[in-house]
Design a protein around this nucleic acid. Structure first.
Length: 488
RNA sequence: GAGAAUAUAGCUCAGUCGGUAGAGCAUCUGCCUUUUAAGCAGAGGGUCGAAGGUUCGAGUCCUUCUAUUCUCACCA
């Protein structure tokens, strides 16, 4: 770095601005390569970062990396002039340059640009940990890859420069989100924004982050979900609303959890959870085709097919299938015995719904690799879901499980304000008993329901997990640009 | 919270039985006008994560600590 600072000064002394204001780019590397014609020397102007250099006295080759990829540049002293060539000799890997020249193919067959003009656009002061690659029998071998996970996440900018797959993953993430946005919009639903700072948090069972508003001198919470606000908008008369929301949960961190994560929630009037399952099938299938050009994805060593229909299984049947135990109609004591029998240690405070959830999470969920709708959860686990139209004690709810993890959650939304109040007050009692994930009674939300909310289907999709599934990334940190890290 | 692994040059890593630190790439100097892990000749670069201990002598053995990664637990 010291040497590069000196070089910067040398350049300044020589009257060369190491940080000029602009450069006219006409083409990108990948377009040039795909559009290359042997019979045509095309004039092009490109800009990017120097990633390899091979200096040979009075001529040099280097690879320039722009936003699309890399292209080789051939730089000859006789063509660019002595001054520009001498400037080039001072440069390093990592510097950003602009080149004007014409396309050609080298002796060894690589499509390249024969430079006629050359200009430094930005001097890099820190050495970039470039990997070297070599083709051995058609296989790409990478040497000295920048692979330290901590440094990759902390200095994502370096990761992006040096590891092209990382860039591709994030481009795919954006493509997935864009497609989903288009998909929902084309159905006629409205993309909206609702508060991140909430005086009463709700819509999920989780511990929140707390913050403080100085002027109002009040506690505020970063949202754990936006469900209750979106339902208020359904009350307000919108047919369908959705929001790509950053949610915040003050909980553990692992490869499936980041304290802030993206969830898209969707609410559609006059629909139920059966309709929503079909929508989810269509959404996942079409997103995969759009982004991957393929309805099969590889995730954690399994091939996962996103071709509808997905399997549908009630939570009771799923537990019966994977454990051989029938939980239907069992009371808390019987359920506790079944769990004990299966070798599960349970917190004595938890109720029957939670026991079923524990059994499911332990023995069933990890085994559901292909996309599966798990339906008809016990009502005490789902205070915001509507009771099942024919099964008592059950709600009209489903989760989509794929790759052994929950990706979506959805229900026919509870719109009876009296029952909703009872459910939330029951949550408040759990809270008093020490369950700090139980929900808080949101009086304004109840007031909204009292004005009347149409029948409504709601959906939440863990966008980060969906991106993991579709890109095959095995850690949430690989689909979030700047995952949460301890301070340096 | 528990367990495992790791920590040596800018990057990726060796370092045997305890004997004063090594490679490739990167960097610097010189040569080289179609190279591609360019090449050739030479050079510089390290408080071996930290602190203690054992020893004539510790990168190596012991103890403690720190950091990171992974797994598990927790987490609709």
């Amino acid at each position: 770095m010291k040497r590069r600072l000196e070089e910067r000064q040398h350049l300044l002394d020589a009257g060369i601005n190491p940080y000029p204001c602009q450069f006219d780019v006409s083409r990108y590397s990948e377009d040039i390569i795909t559009g290359f014609r042997e019979d045509l020397k095309e004039d092009v102007s490109v800009a990017g970062r120097i990633m390899t250099i091979r200096k040979m006295g009075k001529a040099s080759f280097f690879h320039l990396q722009d936003s699309m990829g890399r292209i080789q540049i051939y730089l000859k002293k006789d063509d660019v002039g002595e001054t520009a060539y001498n400037t080039f000799k001072l440069l390093d890997i990592g510097d950003i340059v602009g080149v004007k020249g014409f396309t050609f193919r080298t002796k060894t067959g690589e499509i390249s640009i024969h430079a006629q003009e050359f200009e430094l656009l930005s001097k890099s002061l820190r050495p970039i940990p470039v990997a070297k690659e070599k083709e051995v029998e058609g296989q790409k071998v990478v040497y000295d890859a920048f692979s330290d996970r901590e440094m990759r996440y902390r200095q994502r900018y370096v990761d992006l420069i040096v590891n092209p797959e990382v860039r591709k993953t994030f481009i795919r993430r954006t493509a997935i989100v864009s497609f989903m946005r288009r998909f929902f919009s084309e159905k006629g639903w409205l993309e909206v924004e609702t508060p991140v700072l909430q005086p009463v948090y709700g819509g999920a069972a989780a511990r929140p982050f707390t913050t403080h508003h100085n002027a109002l001198d009040m506690e505020l919470y970063l949202r754990i979900a936006n469900e209750l606000y979106l339902k208020r908008l359904i009350v307000g008369g919108f047919e369908g609303v959705f929001e790509f929301a950053k949610d915040f949960r003050n909980e553990g961190i692992d490869r499936f959890h980041n304290p802030e994560f993206t969830q898209v929630e969707l609410y559609v009037s006059y629909k139920d959870y059966n309709w929503m399952m079909e929508l989810v099938e269509e959404l996942f299938y079409r997103t995969a085709l759009e982004v991957n050009k393929c309805d099969v994805t590889n995730f954690l060593g399994s091939e996962i097919s996103l071709k509808p229909p997905f399997r549908r299984l009630s939570i009771t049947d799923a537990i019966a299938e994977y454990t051989g135990r029938d939980i239907s109609g069992k009371d808390e004591i019987e359920l506790r015995n079944i769990a004990k029998d299966l070798g599960l240690e349970l917190d004595p405070k938890i109720g029957s719904g939670k026991i079923i959830d524990e059994i499911f999470g332990e023995f069933v969920e990890p085994k559901l690799i292909q996309p599966t709708f798990i339906t008809d959860y016990p009502s005490e686990m789902s205070p915001l879901a509507k009771g099942h139209r024919s099964k008592p004690g059950i709600v009209e709810r489903f989760e989509l499980i794929a790759g052994g993890k929950e990706i979506c959650n959805s229900f026919s939304e509870l719109n009876d304000p009296v029952i909703q109040r009872e459910r939330l007050e029951a949550q408040a009692k759990l809270r008093l008993r020490g369950d700090d994930e139980a929900m808080i009674v949101d009086e304004d939300f109840l007031r909204a329901l009292e004005y009347g909310m149409p029948p409504c289907a709601g959906l939440g999709i863990g966008v980060d997990r969906m991106v993991m599934l579709l890109t095959g990334e095995e850690s949430i940190r690989d689909v979030i640009f700047f995952p949460h890290m301890k301070p340096e």
